[in-house]
């Protein structure tokens, strides 16, 4: 069936609610309103206010109470309304959610999913376009994943809910409305990267909102005579190093593309892994095309500030000039 990412997520959560009575959703405006993006549209009507909970306005409350629910055997799926509003919950996420399994020597399992619409490109005001993935990926005990297609959204949200580890589930909001074919068969584990385009000369590594931009850039680079492989990372923690390294060993060149700021980001992590495990195969340094080390800009500047096709192509040229 053809679904938008929003509809795919909605259907994925519906299946989870249907198949496991311990699954419940908590968040601001997710019930009556169906979420500001309508991702949970209709779910409160169908599953009741006990299972689709309109929370008071407080993110620490949403995540903190999800931890308690999980201790009692439930599988809460939290919605944070926008990326920029997750920070009041960060204490609960980092000091509690990520560590309780470890501290309890595995006795306590916290299968909490925290869904966060993230990334820019939708002309929004401040705090509505952030890319906070690194804060979470840097925290041991959390899984951090992101989807780039309706199919992956549909599969991955169910896999995340089924996972016994706390999972930060990042949803690229500017891809919410693009439609894609969705089937029911999961074809890849939650922690695996996907090669979304095969090529021989250079590897582009992206995730979430930049995958589509990167594919467009790959098309354009192909027209200029470069055969490009594109990897959708999907899991940011843990990283599927094998898929990345295997590809770069074949191509000898790599670019990492993300919206989050450059320094200390996913690009640095991926680059380090490549140089560690594919050093002798590299024809050029791994290059990063990312947001800059500034606050997310006012929306009138976001097109140029974000990694776009032109910036990816220019970096491609640089890579081939080595």
């Amino acid at each position: 069936m053809m679904l938008s990412m929003v509809k795919a997520l909605n259907d994925g959560m519906r299946r989870a609610l249907e198949s496991d009575r311990r699954v419940l959703l908590i968040g601001e405006d997710i019930g009556r309103l169906g979420g500001v993006f309508r991702t949970t549209d209709g779910l409160q009507k169908d599953f009741g206010e006990d299972r689709v909970v309109d929370s008071p306005l407080g993110e620490a409350g949403i995540v903190g109470s999800a931890i308690g629910l999980a201790m009692r055997g439930y599988r809460p799926v939290c919605e944070i309304q926008f990326d920029g509003f997750v920070y009041p919950a960060v204490n609960q996420i980092i000091t509690q959610l990520a560590k309780i399994r470890h501290r309890s020597a595995g006795a306590v399992c916290l299968p909490v999913v925290i869904r966060i619409p993230f990334g820019g490109g939708i002309g929004s005001i401040e705090h509505h376009s952030e890319s906070p993935e690194t804060y979470f990926a840097h925290t041991a005990g959390l899984k951090v994943v992101t989807c780039s297609t309706p199919q992956d959204a549909h599969t991955m949200i169910r896999q995340a809910i089924a996972s016994d580890d706390p999972t930060i589930f990042l949803e690229p909001k500017r891809r919410y409305w693009a439609k894609g074919d969705v089937t029911d068969a999961p074809d890849l584990a939650l922690d695996k990267a996907r090669i979304v385009r095969s090529g021989n000369d250079i590897t582009f590594i992206a995730y979430g909102p930049t995958v589509d931009t990167t594919l467009q850039a790959a098309e354009a680079a192909e027209a200029q005579g470069h055969s490009v492989e594109v990897i959708d990372l999907r899991s940011l923690s843990p990283v599927d190093t094998e898929t990345v390294v295997d590809s770069v060993r074949r191509t000898g060149r790599a670019l990492v593309i993300h919206e989050a700021s450059l320094s200390h980001g996913m690009g640095a992590e991926i680059t380090a892994r490549i140089q560690h495990e594919a050093f002798y195969f590299l024809e050029a340094p791994v290059l990063r095309i990312t947001g800059y080390d500034t606050p997310y800009p006012p929306s009138r500047l976001e097109h140029d500030w974000l990694p776009n096709v032109e910036r990816i192509l220019s970096a491609t040229d640089r890579s081939f000039r080595y």
Binding site: D293, P295, P298
Partner: peptide, 20 residues
């Protein structure tokens, strides 16, 4: 006024680091 391309970088720090 339309913001200029350098705006996001300006005033991020009291003294702009060389890298920025």
């Amino acid at each position: 006024a339309e913001p200029g391309t350098t705006l996001p970088f300006e005033h991020t720090y009291a003294d702009m680091p060389a890298e920025l």
